[in-house]
Amino acid sequence: MEDIKKRIRITKFLDYIFAIVGLLSTLVGLALLFTLMTDLFMDGFPRLGYKFFASFPSRFPDEAGILSAWVGSFLVLLVTASAAIPIGVAAGIYLEEYAGKNWLTNIIEINIANLAGVPSIVYGLLALVVFVYFFKFGESILTGGLALALLILPMVIMATREAIRAIPNSIREASYALGATKWQTVQFHIIPYSTGGILTGIIIGLSRAIGETAPIITVGALTFIAFLPSSPFSSEFPFISFKWLFDPFTVMPIQMFNWVSRPQHEFQLNAAAAGIVLMMMTLLMNGFAIYIRYRFRKKIKW
């Protein structure tokens, strides 16, 4: 018995040690995140002012800003969202509600899982050949947006499926029992009840897209752009113009990359400032996604 008691003391001590090691390992990442933010803020915060947002890049670090970059990021994201959301949500609905269990569904599933793991730069190469050279969209906002849409499509599909899967079957049966068709069931029950989950997935996907650099570099976005794309509004009929889709562009992460790569310290401060803006955008989007998930989870309880 004394042996056992001693043994218990040892194992419990090890258990205690591991609890501490485990907590520390979990916190390493968080500590790094915190250090990273602090470092960025210390370097870049003084640069953040109205002028920084309202100026084009420049040879002079003090005058350089991110106007063309944030406008570019916004427009690219607009294209990405308009392409990836409808296709991704539709594909998710098909796979959960319509697809039978057969080889084709199986292939589509394996395929989506695989696409989610394809390195982002490979999407860039695909977009370079297909959009830039084959469809002749050029090195444009349209090309950049579509490249990122390819990238986040698997994420949107998977988020949609997961959200739909959480809806209990009794809901579907209740709808069918009232004589609803499949699409009516989807339209009036499945989509509304899974909106929270789908939105969460979409926002997380878009937040990933906004920080992506590699595929955008591959499709040939310029690193130095001192003008804005054409205005989406025109003075003539029909007053809306899509010419901006075909304009050359740059985005936030590329602007930051460009500044990081320069040897002068002043440009690196600009990089830090751009990094703060970029981080804030992704953190806000992620925070918003968590909030939506939380709210919808509270509202609907199965």
Partner: peptide, 11 residues
């Protein structure tokens, strides 16, 4: 940690 843009990690 996975959401931070990789260019920031590069910096």
């Amino acid at each position: 940690l996975a959401a931070v843009p990789t260019v920031v990690y590069g910096y």
